[in-house]
């Protein structure tokens, strides 16, 4: 009986000590990790306009060039010079969430740039979704009436784009995400600017 008691006490103390250590480290790094994630998002938006920055001053450069507009629960990053917008798109991929940044031209229809911040797709197949050469295929495509990601894409139609070879389900998921997020954001944006 006594040894069981000792074992339980040992496990409890071990759990307590390790948890305290982790809570401490988390408190120490939390702020910096949040800043890094913010910098990643900001760099995705800055890249769309080919604005140069360094990691140290990314926040200042971002605030110089962009206004952050919040409406309902949506956040828009508005380029001060051209008035065109970027926003975060988010949804379910095949294995996990896909999070990215979509930047539109000032006509609010043409894609200027897409960056994927987070994905857990199959490496080498659906994982291609985050690679620049693939995302560059979206540049100049149009979101109206809706973007079609298809393996038989007819590129003479401005709203069609090639799917990922070997990543059919990821392509389908991404098509749903980008269209759903686009219409949700544009609706909010239009109501916001309805009076103008």
């Amino acid at each position: 009986m006594k040894q069981y008691l000792q074992m339980i006490i040992f496990v409890l103390v071990l759990g307590l000590v390790t948890s305290l250590l982790l809570v401490g480290v988390d408190a120490w790094t939390e702020e910096r990790i949040a800043l890094n994630q913010q910098a990643e998002l900001q760099s995705a938006v800055l890249d769309a306009y080919e604005i140069e920055y360094t990691i140290q001053q990314i926040s200042d450069i971002f605030n110089e060039n962009f206004d952050v507009v919040e409406a309902e629960d949506k956040t828009f990053f508005v380029h001060k010079e051209t008035g065109s917008i970027s926003f975060v798109i988010e949804g379910n991929g095949v294995w996990g969430p896909i999070v990215g940044v979509l930047t539109l031209e000032d006509d609010l229809v043409t894609i200027r740039r897409i960056t994927i911040l987070q994905e857990e797709e199959t490496p080498g197949l659906g994982g291609v979704i985050s690679e620049r050469w693939y995302l560059d295929k979206y540049v100049g495509r149009e979101m109206e009436p809706e973007l079609i990601v298809s393996r038989n894409a007819d590129l003479s139609n401005p709203n069609e784009v090639d799917a990922i070879a070997g990543g059919t389900r990821t392509s389908e998921a991404f098509e749903i995400i980008i269209n759903a997020e686009y219409s949700a954001y544009i609706e909010v944006w239009n109501t916001l600017n309805g009076g103008e």
Binding site: Q6, F10, L14, T18, L21, I33, N36
Partner: peptide, 29 residues
């Protein structure tokens, strides 16, 4: 306690691995 020694190692190792992970994410993203 001899019976739970493997579990003890795992808990300790896992703790330090998370420390390294958080440290890298914070300072070397």
């Amino acid at each position: 306690p001899p019976r739970v020694r493997m579990v003890t190692y795992m808990v300790i190792i896992a703790t330090f691995v998370i420390v390294v992970q958080l440290f890298l994410e914070a300072f070397f993203p």
